[in-house]
C-alpha cells in the first residue's frame, strides 16, 4: 500500500509532470492579462459607441459586431499571425536590400533578415492581446449597457455639485457603472477562462499540450512508466480543473458584487 503511494507520488512528481504543473502559469497569465485587456478594450469600445463624433460611434459599433460575428478561434489565430506578418513587413522595409528580396525564394518573409522568430513569451502576450480584443467586444456591449443603466439623477446631481464633465465621468458615471456591469463581466470572464484552453493552437506548450504528451501511450521502459493510452485521464483532470475555476470565479464574483453593491439600492436590500 505505502509502496503504491510512494510509486504514484514519484510518478506524479517526475520531470514531465512538474513541467505540466509549471505550464499552468501560461493559462493563468493569459486569463488574467486577457481579462484586464478585455476590460480596457471594453471601456474604449463603449466610449467610442457613446461618442458624439459619428465615425467613432461607427467604429465602436463595427468592432463590437464584427468581432462577435466571427468565431473566437478564428480571431484568436488570425490576430497573432497578422501582427507577426505586419511587423515583418515593417522590418522588411527597413532592412531588406533589393538583392535580398530577389534572393528570397519562399513566399514569406520578404527577405531572410526580416524574419521575426516568436518564442513562447511573445506568443503568450499576443494571445493575451487577442483574447482581450475578442472579449473586449463582448465587454464593450456589457459596459455600454451598464453606462446607460446608471440613474440619470446621479449624473445630474454630480453636475449640480459643480463637477466637470470629466469628473462626472470618472468619479460618478464609471464608478457606479460597475455594479450594473458585473453580472455581464462575470460572463465575459468565464468565456475568457474557457478560451485559455486554446493556447496550444499558438504553439505554446500549455496544459492541454502537456496533458496530451503525458497521456500518450508509452512502450519504452527507458522513457518512463510503461502505460497504454491515458490521455482521457489527463483530460479529465483538466475538465475538473476548469469546472473548479468556474466555481471559484462564481464565488469571487458574488463576493465582489456584494462589496461593490454596498449602499446601492436593489431588490435584495429592500
Amino acid at each position: 500500500m505505502s509502496d503504491d503511494i510512494a510509486f504514484w507520488l514519484a510518478y506524479l512528481t517526475n520531470g514531465k509532470h512538474l513541467t505540466w504543473y509549471a505550464s499552468f502559469q501560461f493559462t493563468i497569465f493569459a486569463a488574467l492579462a486577457g481579462g484586464a485587456l478585455a476590460v480596457v478594450f471594453g471601456l474604449l469600445g463603449a466610449t467610442f459607441r457613446n461618442s458624439r463624433f459619428a465615425p467613432l460611434r461607427l467604429v465602436g459599433g463595427f468592432y463590437a459586431s464584427i468581432v462577435r460575428g466571427v468565431p473566437d478561434v478564428l480571431f484568436f489565430l488570425f490576430f497573432p499571425l497578422a501582427f507577426e506578418q505586419g511587423m515583418e513587413w515593417l522590418l522588411a522595409t527597413q532592412v531588406c536590400s533589393p538583392g535580398d528580396i530577389a534572393a528570397q525564394t519562399a513566399a514569406w518573409p520578404p527577405c531572410q533578415k526580416a524574419n521575426w522568430l516568436l518564442g513562447t513569451p511573445e506568443y503568450l502576450i499576443l494571445a493575451s492581446v487577442s483574447l482581450g480584443l475578442v472579449y473586449g467586444a463582448f465587454a464593450s456591449t456589457v459596459i455600454h449597457g451598464a453606462l446607460r443603466s446608471v440613474p440619470r439623477g446621479q449624473l445630474e446631481a454630480a453636475q449640480a455639485f459643480g463637477l466637470s464633465a470629466r469628473q462626472v465621468l470618472w468619479r460618478v458615471h464609471i464608478r457606479q457603472m460597475w455594479i450594473y456591469a458585473l453580472p455581464g463581466l462575470s460572463n465575459v470572464w468565464m468565456l475568457i477562462v474557457k478560451a485559455t484552453s486554446l493556447l496550444s493552437l499558438l504553439q505554446i506548450a500549455d496544459i492541454v499540450l502537456w496533458a496530451d504528451r503525458l497521456g500518450a501511450p508509452n512502450f519504452l521502459p527507458t522513457v518512463g512508466l510503461v502505460h497504454d493510452d491515458w490521455r482521457w485521464r489527463y483530460y479529465l483532470v483538466l475538465f475538473v480543473f476548469y469546472i473548479l475555476v468556474t466555481l471559484l470565479s462564481e464565488k469571487a464574483f458574488a463576493a465582489i458584487t456584494r462589496r461593490v453593491g454596498r449602499g446601492v439600492l436593489s431588490e435584495e436590500h429592500n
Partner: peptide, 8 residues
C-alpha cells in the same frame, strides 16, 4: 457549461 468545449 463550466468547461471549455475544446477540452470536452
Amino acid at each position: 457549461r463550466g468547461s471549455p468545449l475544446f477540452i470536452q
